[in-house]
Design a protein around this nucleic acid. Structure first.
Length: 216
DNA sequence: TGCCAGGCCGGGT
DNA sequence: ACCCGGCATGGC
């Protein structure tokens, strides 16, 4: 049995060789990352792009603009991302927090202690662990490993984690066995998504073309 | 044409 | 403490 870090490195190398650099997050600014992270909750990225483009077209992708925008108007604009009523509330919740506590400035938020920021963000209704960690990693460049359904499915399907694994357990697996490098965590998570989208799908138990097929 | 997508919350047991 | 229904659009 190989060392865990070696296995995690091997997975990374295989995914990277196969899919190449992913260059995440697909957004232009840290604020756009935050909005995307909330909108992509259980939704396809294609649909989220539409919603974000709607915001851009109306020149509303800005903390203060969104702060002033009525909830129902916002909901209609982000409709393509699905669950638009609840997501409008979640966006508002985050923006209210950012504007009222940090002058709408993410730099100010990110200048604080990592654990403190994470706690504050998790305290907001509608921001769970994956959303918060995505914001921390992809907008704040903090060394936080993001776990999602793809991560879980791929690892579980390759018998690397048990069925009942929790978010925290999976996150610890990576964070305790890899160097805390945001660039590495960035690429690693993006590669899991690439693998999950292309091969390790829900209804395809055996991924013949998956670069992780003969792992271990 | 169904199934699924880069989750999370709140209420019931 | 877990479990589950609800939230909803658009792509493949």
């Amino acid at each position: 049995m190989k060392d865990i870090s070696k296995i995690l490195e091997e997975i990374y190398n295989r995914l990277f060789r196969h899919f190449g650099p992913q260059g995440w997050w697909p957004a232009k600014t840290p604020f756009e990352v935050c909005v995307g992270a909330i909108l992509t909750q259980n939704a396809s990225w294609k649909n989220v792009e539409k919603a974000i483009n709607n915001l851009k077209e109306k020149n509303l992708l800005d903390p203060f603009k969104l702060y002033e925008l009525p909830l129902n108007i916002l909901a209609n604009i982000i409709k393509p991302s699905g669950f638009y009523n609840i997501k409008a509330k979640r966006l508002k919740e985050f923006i209210k927090f950012l504007v009222e506590n940090y002058e709408g400035n993410l730099e100010k938020l990110f200048s604080k202690n990592l654990n403190e920021i994470r706690k504050e963000l998790l305290n907001l209704r509608g921001l769970g662990k994956e959303t918060v960690d995505s914001i921390l990693l992809y907008a704040g460049n903090f060394p936080v490993f993001v776990v999602d359904t793809y991560t879980y499915r791929i690892l579980n399907r390759h018998y690397l984690i048990p069925e009942e694994s929790t978010y925290d357990e999976i996150q610890e697996l990576f964070m305790e066995n890899l160097p805390p490098d945001p660039k590495l965590f960035n690429e690693y998570h993006a590669l899991f998504v690439a693998c999950g989208k292309n091969y390790c799908k829900k209804k395809t138990p055996i991924c013949e073309k998956c670069p992780l097929k003969d792992l271990k």
